[in-house]
Design a protein around this nucleic acid. Structure first.
Ligand SMILES: [Mn+2]
Ligand SMILES: [Mn+2]
Ligand SMILES: [Mn+2]
Ligand SMILES: [Mn+2]
Lengths: 225, 225
DNA sequence: AGACCAAGTTAAGCATCCTTAAAAATAAAG
DNA sequence: CTTTATTTTTAAGGATGCTTAACTTGGTCT
């Protein structure tokens, strides 16, 4: 098994590259991992030596096939743990991410497979993200769009919430937004890129920062999830 | 939270001191932790600086009050995880120790309390060891004796198995020994300190190494567990 | 007591992962 | 196409936790 730092790094490259094999700037990774640029450059070289990323100085990093395999394993552990903590142990949406962020690094295949079995082989985690199977395959997903790209007047279903920070999740929860909530886009304000949405009878304003982390699907796509 | 190394060290001091505040030789800890004596001496000094152990050169280490508090927290997490993995996830006796050895270092109070609640506040782990409560108090336990101190001809109940290594646990399991099994001491051989025991209709020979890790209670003490 | 031995400690050094500060490469302006 | 600004890398060093090898210390044997 690789070190905690290496696993977190590979997972972050995967997230930042947006699934495809794009090159990611080392400074972007430094931001997300909350370490210095210097630390990220150094790690890029080490992971490159280990054959887990493609890296050329000043050109960013991208996962190799074996690097992606590891990233998907970590992601699998993270997402299964989150679902388990919510479904079986009754923890809250806001609590599970930080816990999973640690557990993902100290869970054997045997254990994570037991958890998967206990949850009856789920396909999505509590934030709507797909869970890789034992071979690293992701389930088919409908195309989702972030709220800041939605159309005013249209109605959508909340389908995924990017859960990088528990602060964001707690804020979203406090607005009454949950997975599979139905929302209507009231209007979009150009000057600050905020979006006003209607949930039930309440109208809330979402800043750009918030709206770009919430993904929705069109109402008629709902059955695909 | 302290580092993994420090937590393991404190836990090992607790185990080695046999509950009371005896001083433990650094070399004994080095053996159990499978590191060099040098590493143990260095760590003794660091933990002493942090006020977690009493340490005077050449005199061994003993837990301070705050050191014992941490040891008991780690022990609590270890034992609750082991029980959880067996009871809820169906893992085997031999598998859970190694898993718990890692999980014990990355589990928040919130999570371990949820686990405790889910298990309905158990008092003993799957090997018969007592589980400290949230305040670090251990449940009352009957006095147990290791099999190598048992009396030939007498009948006992298996009440605790020290689970330092999964090899030992697997061996014991393969002999058909489980918690609460009833056994009879057939005889004790002086020349190699082995013990022969009868379980059901089978007679097995236990080496000294094995017999000193299995603890039994007299038959009439059974109800106290 | 003096010599000896085993147990325990210190010294020096290595791996990992991080930092800040200086240097180099790339990108942006003029 | 230079000059400047920004991004990225390299260099030097610190903390932690480990190693082997050399050195102390305390206890034992004669
Ligand atoms: Mn998460
Ligand atoms: Mn993590
Ligand atoms: Mn155990
Ligand atoms: Mn451990």
């Amino acid at each position: 098994m690789h070190s905690i730092s290496k696993e977190n790094y590979l997972k972050t490259v995967y997230h930042s590259a947006g699934g495809s094999g794009e090159q990611v700037a080392t400074s972007k990774l430094a931001d997300k991992l909350e370490v210095s640029n210097a630390a990220t450059s150094e790690m890029a070289r080490k992971l490159s030596d280990a054959g887990l990323v493609n890296y050329a100085r000043y050109k960013g990093v991208g996962l190799t096939e074996s690097g992606e395999k590891i990233a998907l394993q970590v992601l699998r552990r993270h997402r299964l743990w989150e679902l388990f903590l919510i479904e079986i142990l009754g923890m809250s949406w806001g609590e599970v991410h930080d816990e999973a962020e640690r557990l993902e690094h100290c869970t054997s295949d045997t254990l994570i497979n037991k958890i998967e079995e206990h949850l009856e082989f789920p396909k999505f985690d509590p934030h709507g993200s797909p869970i890789p199977d034992r071979e690293g395959n992701l389930p088919a997903m409908p195309t989702l769009i972030p709220i800041n790209q939605s159309v005013a007047g249209d109605t959508y279903i909340i389908s995924k919430v990017v859960d990088q920070s528990s602060e964001l999740i707690n804020h979203i929860t406090s607005l009454g937004i949950h997975l599979n909530s139905k929302i209507m886009i009231v209007d979009k304000l150009d000057f600050d890129e905020s979006v006003r949405i209607k949930i039930g009878n309440e109208v809330h304003s979402l800043s750009k920062k918030v709206s770009e982390h919430i993904f929705v699907s069109e109402l008629n796509n709902q059955d695909k999830i």
